[in-house]
Amino acid sequence: MTLEIYNLSHPFHQHMPEWPSTPGVNVTVDKFHAKDGVYQVRWDGIMHRCTHMDAPLHVTENTPCINGYPSWRLVGTGVAVSIPKEKWGVITPEDLEKASPQIQEGDIVMINTGFHHKWADCDDYFAYGCGISGAGAQWLVDKKVKCVGYGCQANDHPIATKLVDHGLGPSQPHLIEEYKAVTGRDPKEDFPDWEPAHKTLMVKGGIPGIENIGGDLDKVTGKRCFFMAFPWRWPGGDGCIMRVLAVIDPDQTFRFETGL
């Protein structure tokens, strides 16, 4: 028996790329060996950074916190599928329907858009990235999947966020005219709602959505795997940094013991 374990998380550190909002993440060395004989750092920031999971509470009042996701949604078999996208690409129900291996009811689904290769402090990853449509999120809810991870900047498309004229936005108003110039359409025509994928997937469906999947994602794409993704046990938490693992048994002989 030989199990292969793959990391699907980006590294978390002081200068990691951050979604264009505030506040940022700061890591301060409080104690160090030459002075104190121990090493200790202080972390200040929000949880919506690096590879992380949102709670329904993050986007809708009076909904569950990060503790509200039952553990069975975070562990189990599923698929890593290739759905490549370019600038402002949209993950659609048709993409999900055609995905290989086929997405089945009860699966954990990791979506490889190719954008994890652009993970950097840049517009190419964040402002010009891709995302799933509200209809795509509804497809996943109807399919009754357990959990979804995205190899791109967020659950939602960037044009459905406060970067343009939604919610607290526009925080990057230049994107409105750029989108019109590229597509010939107003952003509100194509993305009339504020973060519909977040609200459809998490609030309506109770399905966790993990943002910024990366690491060894390419190595497991096109395969059926056993996934593990755990947030902190944090009452009231609006989201949480994640370590996401994929486990494959190349020999297809491993089975969990009965415990008897």
Rank of each mutant, 00 (worst) to 15 (best):
residue 27 V to N: 05
residue 115 F to W: 14
residue 224 R to I: 04
residue 101 P to Q: 12
residue 105 E to H: 00
residue 59 V to Y: 09
residue 110 M to L: 14
residue 236 G to N: 11
residue 219 K to V: 07
residue 123 D to L: 06
residue 181 A to T: 08
residue 135 A to T: 04
residue 226 F to G: 01
residue 74 L to M: 12
residue 78 G to H: 09
residue 212 N to G: 00
residue 50 C to W: 03
residue 198 H to V: 10
residue 40 Q to T: 05
residue 162 K to N: 14
residue 19 W to P: 12
residue 11 P to H: 06
residue 96 L to F: 09
residue 165 D to L: 07
residue 159 I to F: 11
residue 138 Q to S: 12
residue 127 A to H: 09
residue 153 Q to F: 10
residue 71 S to I: 15
residue 240 C to I: 07
residue 62 N to V: 06
residue 97 E to Y: 09
residue 201 L to I: 15
residue 37 G to S: 01
residue 157 H to W: 06
residue 89 G to F: 02
residue 47 M to S: 15
residue 8 L to C: 03
residue 169 G to E: 11
residue 251 D to K: 13
residue 252 Q to K: 05
residue 106 G to S: 08
residue 117 H to P: 00
residue 150 Y to K: 01
residue 161 T to C: 06
residue 5 I to S: 02
residue 238 D to Q: 13
residue 130 C to I: 04
residue 28 T to W: 01
residue 84 P to K: 05
residue 66 I to R: 03
residue 135 A to P: 01
residue 168 L to T: 15
residue 100 S to R: 08
residue 181 A to I: 00
residue 103 I to Y: 05
residue 63 T to W: 08
residue 184 G to C: 07
residue 106 G to E: 12
residue 194 W to K: 03
residue 184 G to L: 13
residue 89 G to T: 02
residue 15 H to C: 01
residue 114 G to C: 05
residue 179 Y to I: 02
residue 86 E to S: 15
residue 183 T to Q: 07
residue 78 G to N: 07
residue 246 A to T: 03
residue 101 P to M: 09
residue 73 R to H: 03
residue 122 C to D: 12
residue 143 K to Q: 15
residue 20 P to T: 13
residue 194 W to V: 02
residue 133 S to L: 11
residue 226 F to W: 00
residue 184 G to F: 13
residue 53 M to H: 01
residue 209 G to E: 05
residue 29 V to E: 00
residue 110 M to F: 15
residue 96 L to I: 06
residue 181 A to F: 01
residue 150 Y to V: 02
residue 161 T to A: 06
residue 182 V to H: 12
residue 105 E to V: 05
residue 202 M to W: 03
residue 135 A to I: 00
residue 253 T to D: 09
residue 138 Q to W: 10
residue 27 V to D: 04
residue 117 H to A: 06
residue 123 D to K: 13
residue 246 A to W: 04
residue 202 M to I: 00
residue 171 S to H: 10
residue 188 K to L: 14
residue 112 N to V: 11
residue 62 N to Y: 13
residue 75 V to D: 00
residue 94 E to L: 01
residue 129 G to E: 10
residue 128 Y to G: 06
residue 218 D to Y: 10
residue 60 T to F: 08
residue 164 V to T: 12
residue 27 V to Y: 05
residue 61 E to D: 15
residue 242 M to A: 10
residue 200 T to Y: 01
residue 231 P to F: 04
residue 167 G to M: 09
residue 202 M to H: 01
residue 4 E to H: 15
